[in-house]
Amino acid sequence: MTMRSVGDGKAEFYELLPGREHVTVIEPRANPFRLDLRELWNYRDLVLLLVRRDFVAQYKQTILGPAWHIIQPLLTTLMFTIVFGKIARLPTDGLPPFLFYMAGTVIWTYFANVFTATTGTFAHNAHIFGKVYFPRLVMPLATLVSRLIAFAIQFAVFLGILAYFAVTDAAVQPNLWVLLTPVLLMMMAAIGLGGGLIVAAFTTRYRDLVVLVSFGVQLLMFATPIIYPLSSLPARWQFWASLNPIAPVVEAFRYAYLGQGTLSVGMLLLSALVVVLILSAGVVLFNTAERTFVDTV
């Protein structure tokens, strides 16, 4: 549904009133490439309130509350350390396995959470979307922020454990690349959001995708250097593996904090380009799907 500023169309109707007045024009087709950032900005309070709602509602009547944010990645890391480190004996670039897996888990979890939650945008909010209008992108953006809070908690735990290892283990060497962290996070958020929006747009037509998502995320994790370093792959596979836009980000993250890994600026730039494409495609498809999704869900 398009919003236009005053000035086009029939004169008597659009005759200006004192103050700002906005005119809403509803038409069958809107330009899917148009992203109304000003309108989104007007709803920033809603984004914040939704983040608060997610956080508060998630832990009402639970015993451990937000501690779950810490327990979950710690248990995952512990399991990875035992299964892939001790039993399968996968290499970890000479790093302590626990730290290696934790770095991967923390950043991967952020991506996986944003992606999974975004794919459910239409399915989970159908009752709200069917009753009231607001820019639909508000919902995935709120998800992005609320998962960022979870990430921050996990990241703090990671930093604590890193501090211990940095003192006791010479192989662990955090370096100045950590300054790139915000960029890496933004890339992860953008892949999760963009990919999630693409899938969300298709779920309005194909319900099958809902089932595929959690399964797909798991498969994608094995295709990403989370439980193994990129360097452990045969040379000719390394190139193909780093075409996965998440791979260079994870490797850069690990290199920055642990001092070991494959940091490739060229691959990061290529990855950034792919990320922009995914995000744009996601927004366009989402804009198209949102206009009539209530008729099909």
Partner: peptide
């Protein structure tokens, strides 16, 4: 603005 019209304005 919950669903788009098919025709008209």
């Amino acid at each position: 603005r919950i669903t788009a019209p098919t025709e008209g304005r």
